[in-house]
Computed example of a mutant assay.
Amino acid sequence: MIKKTGTAPDEGYLTISNLEKYYGPYHALRDVSLSVRRGEFVCFLGPSGCGKTTLLRAIAGLDPQSSGQIWQDGRDISLLPPARRDFGIVFQSYALFPNLSVIDNVAFGLRNTGVSAKDARTQAQELLAMVGIAEHAQKYPSQLSGGQQQRVAIARALAMSPGLLLLDEPLSALDARVRVRLREELHDLQRRVGVTSIMVTHDQEEALSLADRIVVMNAGRVEQFDTPQRIYSHPANRFVAEFVGDMTLIDGQSDGQDAVRIRQQRLELGQLRKGAPTGATAIGIRPEDLVLTQSGTGPNTVTATVDAVEFSGASAVVRLHAPTLCDIPLRARLSLATLTQLQLAEGISIGAHLLPDALHVFPVHGDAA
């Protein structure tokens, strides 16, 4: 039995209030509240088992919440069955009808609403053209590649002109090159159609490139709900910092004002980072914010030894050992031009400058400063 709690919705197109979900003793969703704007593309991002798919299924009514409320376009849909909710959904497996042609797969839902066979096929053909596979209309799903099947599934989900498009890891079964191309197409399609969209993914690069805002989830909770830029540059806590992007975390002490101390090294904080809580902290630095210089002196600069240089196309990651700062490796991401200019090689001594405004300071337990 669903228990309804919470207050009236705000002005979001989709508003979730105090959602809880139990599977017996297992607490899958913990007081989840958020609001999605009309026309927005939102990604639910998190590790396996964090609750992101459970939340998507609760929105769809496929696996109703234990308590809490969901509103869509001002309508309380908390207790409604899936058939009475306004959404289209694309599953990870695409769930196409194998015995129907591509065009009949897309037209299927339209036929069930009383649209004539001719009109349904006309609309289906237009949708197939929109997603770029009109020439495959008469084929069967088994004759299509994974990427083509995904486009059919999206066209079918859009056929009913839903107010909300739900995508459950739609790109996860595709190889890397196809995923990159299709996520660009999915982004462009969502902008053209303007449908409010929610996508579940465990791929941070996917979320960062597609979403207007990202819901980062962990253990059934929302850790942060913000733009990709804010989540990357101002993670709310240590979990978000470690899960999104690449960050080295070093134990230290904060003086509560404008500096932190790690071993013998005092690191100044920039204006954006001042006001860190006093006491034991974890100091985070992303590889692109570690600047290598020929000089190993000066504020926020330590002397380091190059352990390895790892090439990755147009850039390289340099692993460094800086014993005055920490025992764990530091990582710096450089362009190939900078790498060539510095003439880096294993065993070379180099200066590593930690940009003051790029340092992240996290309490040992709790949120970021």
Score class of each variant (00 low, 15 high):
Val90Lys: 02
Arg263Leu: 11
Gly252His: 04
Met130Trp: 00
Gln149Ile: 09
Ser295Pro: 01
Gln65Leu: 14
Arg30Phe: 13
Arg192Asp: 08
His353Cys: 02
Ala352Asp: 04
Phe41Val: 10
Pro277Phe: 04
Ile77Val: 15
Ser116Asp: 00
Trp71Thr: 10
Ser142Arg: 14
His365Asn: 15
Asp104Phe: 06
Ile198Phe: 11
Ala276Asn: 03
Thr278Trp: 00
Asp255Ile: 13
Val195Lys: 03
Ala124Val: 05
Gly49Phe: 14
Gln341Asn: 15
Asp327Tyr: 00
Glu206Tyr: 04
Val131Arg: 05
Leu96Lys: 08
Ala352Met: 08
Val193Leu: 10
Asp86Thr: 02
Asp31Tyr: 10
Leu320Tyr: 10
Phe87His: 02
Asp246Cys: 09
Tyr13Cys: 01
Ile133Gln: 06
Arg273Asp: 01
Arg151Ser: 10
Ser349Met: 12
Ser78Gln: 11
Ala280Arg: 14
Ala236Met: 14
Ser254Gln: 01
Leu14Lys: 05
Asp104Ala: 06
Gln343Ala: 15
His365Arg: 15
Ile231Lys: 07
Phe44Asn: 00
Ile70Glu: 07
Asp289Tyr: 15
Gly256Val: 12
Ser197Cys: 03
Leu128Gln: 09
Lys274Gly: 05
Phe225Arg: 02
Asp104Ile: 04
Arg30Glu: 09
Val200Trp: 12
Leu29Lys: 01
Asp188Lys: 14
Arg177Ile: 05
Gly109Ala: 07
Met160His: 00
Leu158Cys: 03
Val215Asn: 07
Leu174Met: 02
Gln143Asp: 07
Leu166Trp: 10
Ala332Asn: 06
Ala159Glu: 09
Gln123Glu: 06
Ser254Leu: 03
Thr293Gly: 11
Gln253Ile: 10
Ala155Leu: 05
Ala155Cys: 02
Arg38Leu: 13
Thr122Ala: 08
Phe311Glu: 08
Met217Lys: 03
Gly46Val: 03
His365Asp: 12
Gly61Arg: 12
Arg286Ile: 12
Ala314Arg: 07
Gly270Leu: 03
Gln257Phe: 11
Leu336Pro: 11
Asp226Tyr: 13
Glu223Tyr: 14
Gly284Asn: 02
His202Arg: 04
Pro141Asn: 02
Ala124Leu: 07
Thr53Asn: 04
Gly351Glu: 06
Gly68Thr: 12
Tyr94Phe: 02
Thr201Gln: 04
Leu334Arg: 02
Leu272Ile: 08
Gln343Phe: 08
Leu100Phe: 11
Gly284Ile: 07
Ala134Tyr: 01
Ala314Ile: 15
Gln72Asn: 10
Asp63Trp: 14
His360Gln: 13
Glu268Phe: 10
Phe362Leu: 11
Ser142Thr: 02
Tyr22Met: 06
Val260Ala: 05
His234Lys: 13
Gln125Ser: 10
Pro277Glu: 01
Arg286Thr: 07
Leu330Tyr: 07
Val32Cys: 09
Asp251Val: 13
Asp255Glu: 09
Gln149Ala: 05
Glu126Arg: 14
Ile283Asn: 05
Gln204Tyr: 11
Met130Thr: 07
Gly61Glu: 06
Val152Arg: 08
Gly49Gln: 10
Gln257Thr: 15
Ala316Arg: 01
Arg331Ile: 11
Arg156Ala: 05
Ile262Phe: 00
Pro363Cys: 12
Leu29Ile: 09
Ser67Ile: 13
Gly61Tyr: 13
Ile285Leu: 09
Val178Gln: 01
Phe362Asn: 08
His27Trp: 13
His365Thr: 15
Gly347Cys: 14
Ser33Leu: 06
Thr305Pro: 11
Arg177Gly: 00
Val131Gln: 02
Pro82Gln: 05
